[in-house]
Structure formats: structure tokens, C-alpha cells
Design a binder for these strands. Structure first.
Length: 625
RNA sequence: GGGCUCGUUGCACAGCCAGGACAGUGCGGACGCUUGCGGAGCGUCAGGUCGAGGGUUCGAAUCCCUUCGGGCCCGCCA
């Protein structure tokens, strides 16, 4: 039994009462009440007012009276509020219920997915540069959505798409082959940083001044399409070196994958030809004989101009590469790939990669009934076209969905700090122009800052322990900042503000966890749970209990809306409840042993619930910090 | 020009999808709290035409329409 189920029970009882009075069904809700209005509340009286021809308050009184026969289990009384609300007050048994529920190893687990297979694709950074702060938002959102889906019984596979044959890769290959850049980075600089900060930026810069140099670009791009060309082989070596460094950053962030998909292989697999035939047969594409798209194959995009899929010279466009990939993810076309081990990840799981070379490994399956692709909102237009096309190939509702989020921009101060001019309050990042903040650098400066803070407070801890704490808090801080607001809000990243560790930040959450840990450590004995918990009676205690009980309601909401923010809000509200309790209710300093024990149990339940919730966000919980 | 999206206190946000009881939180500002389990904390105060106008409703920050302002996207580039 959980709070969520009590709400469901109240709802069904009220439905019975409504039916007995002969009222039509209305869509009322039963929810947790605001402080001061009991424990649960229902708006049914407002909705019945019209058809009953009575005031909401009068109806609430009738329902409250009728509800009396259902009281007893967890509810002590119900009353009509003069506003019209129907309010419920729980009895002391609720304390016991919440504490016992939170001890269950499956606390928070809800079977929404029924083992449905879901593919989540995220990260997908061009392998020509290091991850910047904007990419971090993508992989953190993707990773947390995966965690939420797993917690709600979905069978999730995680893909990272490697666009190893696009223009951006061609640019660094031009730099290496024709721009005089050494393959070995200076001063042992991380290879992805070197490619992005030096080779890419300076090569694209040179295009502007040297038109002839710019011609190499298309020569290289063409060569990349032929897997046997020397340039393609060279590019393969370079992009894999970059990818390996990028993955180190992802892993550092606690993000892992099941399979890497290489765009070059999708091209070589000829999947496009197959899907193109399907599209032609189904008349989803049209060959233009006149107009501005003469001799092109186009697709209709509702309310917008037609999109070219195949150019008049017969070469497929960018969007045409995404269509077979989307179809492959949903298992609409036969899988042309074999799979080989890329490496074992730091969390112990195997990372696979696609290959076109036949091997004897077991045939793996990385397609699913449902596909979620995490890409920023600038791609919405193209993703809509793909979604509508895929829906015609696989009509199940929401089989393919684009999880969109707003991009991360840089504050004016930050842009100036990295040596660029700026007009206005913020600027879009640009890899080409060198306007970005690398994720590794942010993590590093956060770690330094946190290491010092932790050292001040924990003079007894060794440096490597402090380093571990610094890493946990730094990664958590970055993750939390990336998801605590809604996906459709732009995040303006500011170097200075990003180092803040006070207020609504991850360290506030982790700090409250550390506080709880210390109390349990100092208690000297384990909390005993064979209790009724009727002594937990202050508002601080009952509020904290109610927050704990909201965990599965929160997960339900987060899963249904694919919303990491919902979990972040829950963690914050939970920590606020605890910190308020902590300041006002002494746990250990009490002569009554049973009060001490019951409060210790409460602290224990808070700690384990926060740990589970933070785990959904991929945030670690150090005992000391 | 067309499409999408955001607009809530000095700043950053929650609440909006599933309309209701005093519109919450953080930062910043003013002030207070440690011979108490860690002050990365707790508490008090100041600060709001929920962009504007209309509509639906007994009731709108929330739903609908119009409008203004910011952002993004609209290539036979990727």
C-alpha cells in the first residue's frame, strides 16, 4: 500500500457515493492537500454543483457525511471546507504505512511500461570536437529519461549515433591533410579538445580567406562516402580517437550506452535504397518534373514547403540519412548490421558497436516498439517530417517521438570571458566560431572548488576521499543544473554562477543526505522498525513523512510526461522538508528512547528515499562532503 | 512573410498538460539564529497589473481567441 493507492481508493469510494445519489460521472481529482487543509482533498463538489443545483459547500457536506462508512483504515475524518473542498484527515496508521512502504526495495517502482521495449537515442555529438556544455544537457536529459523509464518497467536500450561522415568531420580532416595540423596534439592536450579548439576552428576560419582551401572540403566529403578511400580510412581513425575521448566525458558524467551507431555504416548498408523503394511504393515521395525542385524527389511537409530528399544529381540529402535510421530503430526494415564489442564501460556494462563485417557474435537487437530521440528544439521541423513519415510506416501511436529541449546559451559575461565580442544578454554557442565552454573544463573547475570546500569542513579526510566527493558533487551539480527547469526553457550558462553551491543546487540535496547519514552514524544503534510511529506528531515530522510518500506519485508523473524536472523538484522539496525538520526537531537529544528510535527511522526513510530519487537523476550521495 | 516556442517580484524559475482554498521557491537586498545531530543550513521582513486585451466558467496564472515583446527554425548545407 502506498499513498498513491490510498488516493485511488478514496476516488473509487467517492465515485460510489456519486452514483448512489444518481449524479452523472464527473472528472474530479483526489490529491494531497496543501498544508493546513488536512491530508487529502477532493474537488468533486465544485463539479457537481451545477447538475445538483446546490452550492459546492452543501454537496461537500453530503459527500463527507456519506463517506463516514468508509473511514477507519487510514482516514480518521472527512469534512467539508466552506470553500467547497472535501478534505480528509488521516489517522496515525498513515505514519506506519508510509514508513513501511518506503522500506520496500521496490519503493517507487510502478509498472507503467509492462516491459515494453523502448529505444532512447541521445548524445549523438559530431566526432570532431569535445562535448560542450550544451551537449551535456542532451545527454543528461536522455540518461535521466532512461532511468525513469527503467524504474517504470520499460525495457530500454540506449543508442549514441556517431555522425562520422558529415561536413564537420570533413572539416577537421581537411585541417589534418591540407592545413598542416599535426595528428599529435601539443602539450598532451585531450584529443577531442585539440580537434575542436584548434583544428576545427582554425580550419573553418581559413575557408573565409582562402577560397581554394575551401574546395578541399567537398573533395573530402565526397571521399568519406567511399569506405575504401584513403581519406575515409584516415577519417575513421581520427573520428574514433575523438569518440573515445568524448565517451570519457560521458562516462565521467555517469552516462552509459548500449550501442554506438555509425552514420558511415548506415550509408554503406544501403538501407536508404530499401526505404526509398518503400516510400515510392507507398507514394509518400514524389518526383518533381517542374518548378524549383525539378528532377528532385521530395516529401510533403504539412503546411510547409516540400522538403528535398534526393537532389537532382541523385544524391540523398541530410534528412534522407535520418529516415532509414529511424526506421531501423523501430525494426521496420531488416537489420543489416552485425555487432561487436566496443568496450566494457566503467559501470561494468558492455558497449556494442555496429559493424557491416560478418561475425559470429550472437545477433543482438537494438530496435524497439517505441523510439525516443533526444535532440534540441532547433531540429523540431525536420523531426516532425520524420515523425509523420515514420507514423505512416508504423501506425502505432507515438511509436517515434522527438524529445525536444531548448538549447544552452552563454551569458554575456561568459562570452567576454572567453575572448569574444557580444551584443545583447546572451549568445548561442558555436563550435565553428569557437564560442562554447567545454564540459571537461566546467567539471574540472567545479571539482577544484568543491574539493576546497570539502577540505575546509573535513580536515580528517584523505585527499583521494576528498577527490571522490568533489567528483560526485561536481557531476551532480552539473546534472542538476541541466534538468531542474523545464525542457522548453533556455539555460543561460554563466561561468561564475555555475560555481554556486547554495540554495536550489545539487549540493543542497547532497548536504541534507550527508546530515541524515551523520545522525544515523552517531546514533550508535540501528533504528528498529517494529513500531507504530505514533510519536511522530509534529508538523515537521508529518510533512517530511508526506513528502516521502509522494515518491511514487512523482515517478508516475515524471514517466508519463518524460520529465526529469519533476524528479528534481521532488528531491528539492524532500530536502527542504528534511532540513526544516533537522533544524527544529532534535533526533538524538531526547530522554525518551522510543521517540529517538521513531525519529531515527524517519531519518533512515528520508535518507533512502532521497538516495533512490537522486539515483534517478544520476546523482551520487556521499556520506560526507 | 510563414511555423514553433517562451513571457509569473530586480534576476532565475515552480505552478499551466488534468481550471478552484492565501500565486510558491532560489539568487540578490534588510535583519536574526551555533556552550545543541555538520551554518553547503534554518528563520523573519521587503518586493507580484501572473506581457496586454477580450472570451468561456459560479470561479482563469492555468482553457480559447486576438495582440505585443524575446528566442529558434524555414537550402538541391550537415
Amino acid at each position: 500500500m502506498t499513498l498513491r493507492l490510498i488516493l485511488t481508493e478514496i476516488e473509487s469510494n467517492i465515485k460510489k457515493i456519486i452514483a448512489q445519489h444518481g449524479f452523472r460521472e464527473v472528472e474530479f481529482v483526489v490529491e494531497l492537500a496543501k498544508p493546513g487543509f488536512g491530508d487529502f482533498t477532493c474537488n468533486v463538489a465544485f463539479l457537481l454543483a451545477k447538475q445538483a443545483g446546490k452550492k459546492p459547500y452543501d454537496i461537500a457536506q453530503i459527500v463527507a457525511e456519506d463517506y463516514k462508512k468508509y473511514l477507519g483504515n487510514y482516514l480518521a475524518k472527512t469534512e467539508a471546507h466552506k470553500s467547497g473542498y472535501l478534505n480528509f484527515h488521516s489517522n496515525q496508521k498513515l505514519n506506519n504505512l508510509i514508513i513501511k512502504a518506503s522500506l520496500d526495495e521496490n519503493f517507487g517502482f510502478i509498472d507503467i511500461g509492462k516491459k515494453k521495449s523502448v529505444i532512447v537515442e541521445h548524445t549523438s555529438v559530431n566526432p570532431n570536437k569535445a562535448l560542450h556544455i550544451g551537449h551535456i544537457r542532451n545527454l543528461v536529459i536522455g540518461d535521466i529519461v532512461v532511468r525513469i523509464l527503467k524504474k517504470t518497467n520499460h525495457d530500454v536500450k540506449i543508442l549514441n549515433y556517431v555522425d562520422d561522415s558529415g561536413l564537420q568531420v570533413a572539416d577537421i580532416i581537411v585541417g589534418f591533410k591540407y592545413g598542416g595540423f599535426s595528428e599529435a596534439p601539443p602539450n598532451e592536450k585531450k584529443f577531442d579538445h585539440y580537434c575542436g579548439d584548434e583544428v576545427y576552428v582554425k580550419t573553418t576560419e581559413k575557408y573565409e580567406s582562402d577560397k581554394q582551401f575551401a574546395e578541399y572540403r567537398h573533395k573530402v566529403l565526397q571521399a568519406l562516402e567511399d569506405p575504401n578511400s584513403e581519406l575515409a580510412k584516415f577519417a575513421n581513425i581520427i573520428t574514433r580517437k575523438v569518440l573515445a575521448e568524448q565517451l570519457k566525458t560521458c562516462w565521467k558524467m555517469g552516462v552509459y550506452y548500449d550501442c554506438l551507431n555509425f552514420e558511415s555504416q548506415i550509408i554503406h548498408s544501403k538501407l536508404w535504397d530499401k526505404i526509398f523503394e518503400m516510400l515510392k511504393k507507398m507514394s509518400l515521395v514524389r518526383f518533381e518534373k517542374e518548378g524549383k525542385n525539378t528532377n528532385c524527389w521530395v516529401i510533403e511537409a504539412q503546411g510547409e514547403e516540400d522538403k528535398v530528399l534526393v537532389r537532382s544529381n541523385g544524391v540523398a540529402t541530410y534528412i534522407a540519412k535520418d529516415i532509414p535510421y529511424a526506421a531501423w530503430k523501430l525494426g521496420i526494415i531488416d537489420d543489416p548490421f552485425y555487432y561487436k564489442k566496443y568496450s566494457t564501460q566503467p559501470n561494468g556494462t558492455m558497449l556494442w558497436e555496429t559493424t557491416l563485417e560478418k561475425n559470429n557474435n550472437q545477433k543482438l537487437k537494438f530496435s524497439g516498439q517505441k523510439v525516443i530521440t533526444v535532440i534540441d528544439s532547433r531540429q523540431t521541423r525536420l523531426q516532425k517530417i520524420i515523425t509523420s513519415l515514420i507514423t505512416k510506416l508504423k501506425p502505432e501511436k507515438d511509436a517515434y517521438s522527438h524529445l525536444s529541449y531548448e538549447s544552452v546559451t552563454l551569458s554575456a559575461d561568459t562570452v567576454k570571458a572567453i575572448g569574444h565580442e557580444i551584443e545583447g544578454k546572451q549568445a548561442q554557442m558555436s563550435g565553428r566560431k569557437g564560442i562554447y565552454i567545454n564540459a571537461d573544463d566546467v567539471i574540472e573547475s567545479l571539482e577544484k572548488r568543491i574539493f576546497e570546500e570539502a577540505k575546509k569542513r573535513n580536515t580528517d579526510l584523505a585527499n583521494d576521499t576528498l577527490s571522490k566527493i568533489a567528483a560526485d558533487v561536481a557531476v551532480g551539480t552539473l546534472r542538476y543544473e541541466m534538468i531542474k527547469q523545464d525542457l522548453d526553457k533556455i539555460i543561460t550558462f554563466d561561468l561564475k554562477k555555475s560555481l554556486s553551491l547554495e540554495g536550489d543546487t545539487c549540493s543542497y540535496l547532497q548536504y541534507s543526505y550527508a546530515r541524515a547519514s551523520r545522525i544515523l552514524e552517531k546514533a550508535g544503534s540501528e533504528p528498529k522498525f517494529d513500531s507504530s510511529f505514533e510519536l511522530l506528531s509534529t508538523d515537521y515530522e508529518t510533512n517530511l513523512l508526506k513528502m516521502i510518500a509522494k515518491f511514487d506519485i512523482c515517478i508516475n508523473d515524471a514517466a508519463n510526461n518524460l520529465s526529469p524536472k519533476v524528479v528534481a523538484r521532488f528531491c528539492y522539496d524532500l530536502a527542504v522538508s528534511f532540513n526544516s525538520f533537522y533544524e527544529h526537531v532534535p533526533v538524538l537529544d531526547n530522554d525518551n528512547k522510543e521517540i529517538v528510535n521513531q525519529r531515527l527511522c524517519l531519518v533512515y526513510c528520508f535518507k533512502s528515499t532521497l538516495e533512490r530519487a537522486l539515483d534517478l537523476l544520476g546523482i551520487a550521495t556521499p556520506r560526507r562532503m
